[in-house]
Simulated assay, not measured.
Amino acid sequence: METTGAYGRSLARFLAQQQLLISVMNPALIHAFGKTELSRAKTDKADARLIARYCQMHRPAPWVPPAEAIVTLQALVQRLDDL
């Protein structure tokens, strides 16, 4: 999956808790990969296929949830930036 902010982090954590193997990728990598395939379609279905092809070719590392202390610290820093 691509990183999508707070919603993506919650989904990734949930999927990891369900013992599913996931990778969380920078959207810029997927976008650049799409350009190499001359992919122009920008729909959820086309994006899902593109991410699947990327993962088949590149075998990204599995995502490991950060420790709860790290999650809390990141949330505090984000809140400070927001203020």
Rank of each mutant, 00 (worst) to 15 (best):
F14S: 10
D47L: 06
Q74C: 11
S39G: 05
M25N: 08
K45M: 01
C55P: 00
L29V: 01
V64R: 15
L11D: 03
E37Q: 12
K42C: 06
T4G: 15
S10E: 13
S10Q: 12
E37H: 07
A28L: 14
E2F: 03
E2L: 12
V64H: 14
V24I: 08
F33V: 03
L83A: 11
Q78D: 14
Q17P: 00
I70F: 07
H58G: 01
A67R: 15
F14Q: 11
A61V: 07
A52N: 09
H58S: 06
F33M: 05
Q56D: 12
G34F: 00
Q19Y: 03
S10F: 04
H31E: 13
A67P: 15
P27G: 04
S10T: 09
L29H: 12
R79H: 12
R79N: 13
L50H: 01
T3D: 14
Q17L: 06
M25D: 06
Y54D: 07
M57Y: 08
A32P: 00
I70Q: 15
H31T: 11
A52G: 06
P60V: 05
V24F: 01
V24S: 02
K42G: 03
D81C: 08
T72I: 12
A67K: 14
T43Q: 05
A12F: 02
G34A: 01
P65C: 05
P66A: 09
A16C: 13
L20R: 13
K35S: 08
A16L: 05
I22Y: 00
L80S: 10
A75T: 06
A61P: 04
A48F: 01
L21A: 15
L76C: 12
L20Y: 09
P65F: 01
V24L: 10
Y7R: 13
A32T: 04
L50R: 09
R40A: 12
L83H: 13
L20A: 10
L38R: 11
A41M: 10
A6D: 12
L50A: 02
D82G: 13
M25S: 05
A32C: 03
L20H: 10
P66S: 11
L83P: 02
A52Y: 04
P62W: 10
P60I: 02
A16T: 14
V71T: 14
E68N: 08
A52T: 08
W63F: 15
L50T: 00
S23F: 00
N26V: 08
I70T: 15
P60E: 05
V77C: 13
I70P: 06
A69R: 13
D82W: 07
E37I: 05
V71H: 07
V71F: 06
G5L: 02
Q56P: 00
D47Q: 08
P27I: 04
K42I: 03
W63K: 07
V71C: 11
T43D: 09
R79C: 07
E68F: 02
A6V: 10
